[in-house]
Design a protein around this nucleic acid. Structure first.
Lengths: 178, 178
DNA sequence: CTTACCATGTAAGGCGTTACATGATTCA
DNA sequence: TGAATCATGTAACGCCTTACATGGTAAG
């Protein structure tokens, strides 16, 4: 019922690459997945505990860091769970684009306001695009280091293509309104 | 706290165009907004009641339809509420692209599986694109009938540009994997 | 010695989905 | 007369976000 939980497979997916702490998981979500996924600490840590109780992940013996750091690694049970989700062809893509919603209802406020909305959107997207292009470069040069880098590169390129399309649209839209 | 409710402004925005029933609101969300927004009956009807209690919308005298149909119209209070939201430059765009997530973790299953994921995605997008292009035609020919049609056309074009970028990416990605 | 960041967690609560319930109307 | 669609609504449930709480560590 309600929404289906996905944080578990997100974590499993990230840990299938290498062992990590919850904090590191959050960083990756915010940096690499941010343009097609999101998640907060309040969702990550409880899921981590849940997955451990399920024996899908396990704590890794910590180096003598002394810190309260907890590193997790995926188990065979976890790998199987991940595979099951990956094998399922059904994928729900959910978008809630408030920017577009405001544009859709823009008639109420008039052109100047809509132009402002588009400007805000354009600025946001431009920044993201620059970051993605930076990632792209890094990934291109390290493509043979790790097989997974190919898939990361593909998602980054997806973001780049999408954002370019958005920026093109911003230009066209501004012209149409003027 | 938690997520900010948006269904109220969605309904207000749709009613600012013309009076409607909850059922009609649902249809518009599913047809015109679907590629950047979504919403269910379980969210629409309670919000409708809430907005009426707030006097942001009101029941319209029904024709002698006899049916249990309830048509709502926006009030001045509602228009003001809508304007306040539209005036606010902050917009949260939230995407949960399960398709991309599966791709990002695709290393676990290998190329064939990823190619299948991309194929599924491509098919889905192609269908949506065809529909959007149909909408575009209709809107282009009725552009001078209603001022709002301009804004609808812009959002439809946003969808078209975005989906075209996605399809281009699908092609590139398949080539890279082969 | 203070600022920024690393690091983990809990509590409260909203939001919206899915599933269920109910019945009218239209059309073949 | 049966199926599809129109039409409104409620109940349960769960995900996730925000905000709060707490403390360690590194660097300047």
């Amino acid at each position: 019922m309600a929404n289906e939980k996905k944080m578990d497979v997100v974590i499993l997916g990230l840990l299938s690459h290498e062992p990590m702490t919850g904090y590191e998981i959050k960083k990756i979500i915010d940096n690499q997945l941010k343009y097609f996924w999101s998640g907060s600490f309040g969702s990550i840590y409880p899921t981590l505990n849940f997955l451990e109780s399920e024996k899908a992940i396990e704590k890794v013996e910590n180096e003598v860091t002394g810190r309260g750091k907890i590193t997790y690694a995926i188990t065979d049970v976890g790998r199987q769970k991940l595979k099951m989700w990956l094998d399922n062809p059904v994928s729900k893509d959910e978008l809630k684009y408030e920017s577009l919603l405001k544009l859709f209802f823009g008639g109420e406020l008039g052109k100047e306001s809509v132009l402002r909305q588009i400007g805000n959107f354009e600025e946001k997207i431009s920044k993201e695009l620059a970051m993605l292009q930076f990632f792209e470069k890094n990934l291109e040069s390290s493509l043979n280091e790790d097989e997974d880098h190919l898939y990361f590169l593909l998602t980054v390129r997806f973001g780049i293509e999408t954002y370019k399309a958005h920026l093109k649209w911003c230009k066209d839209a501004k012209n149409m309104l003027k």
